[in-house]
């Protein structure tokens, strides 16, 4: 189903914090800014709620890219959450090569509630990068497939 007309359509999971990035995504919608439909957003209270396990789980279940969006440094609704997210993701991303996953399949971005344009362009760019990388096969657990 993904390879309709030989065109590869990646599966992208986007974790967006409730206060900035999810609102930024809403703004992109309100302003009718298009970005690829491959992106599916999961709402979390804060970028620091994103457990590295969720990202690995997504790759295991066949996601081709995972992007985490949070408030800009210093603007976190919970004061320090995005700093925790930054540290955790830096550590996780640095270990992805070891797992055989290209680092480019993950990304951490700061998108504020006012940056609808940035949200749309970030997503378009990320989908483009992941599409170029192709299918994620390394971590996909075939047993998870129906």
């Amino acid at each position: 189903m993904q390879m309709v007309n030989n065109e590869f359509k990646p599966k992208i999971v986007a974790f967006c914090c409730n206060w900035c990035s999810y609102a930024g995504a809403d703004l992109a919608g309100t302003n009718r800014l298009q970005y690829p439909a491959e992106v599916k957003i999961i709402r979390v209270p804060c970028s620091c709620r994103v457990n590295p396990m969720f990202i690995l789980r997504a790759f295991q279940r066949g996601a081709d890219g995972v992007i985490i969006c949070g408030c800009h440094p210093g603007d976190c609704h919970y004061t320090t959450g995005n700093y925790y997210a930054r540290r955790r993701m830096t550590l996780l991303f640095s270990m992805l090569d070891f797992l055989g996953i290209e680092k480019e399949r993950t990304r951490l971005e700061w998108v504020s509630a006012a940056e609808g344009q940035k949200f749309a362009s970030t997503m378009s760019d990320f989908v483009k990068t992941v599409t170029e990388l192709g299918k994620n096969k390394r971590l996909e657990d075939l047993r998870c497939k129906k």
Binding site: I42, V44, C46, M53, F54, T80, R88
Partner: peptide, 30 residues
């Protein structure tokens, strides 16, 4: 905010409304 849920090494911390299993289920469904 959920910072503690990720910091917890034993998985004892969880967040009401955004629990580990709930987010995992969303990931799986997507």
């Amino acid at each position: 905010c959920g910072a503690c849920t990720v910091a917890c090494p034993s998985g004892a911390m969880d967040l009401n409304g955004f629990s580990n299993s709930q987010i995992m289920a969303e990931v799986d469904a997507i």
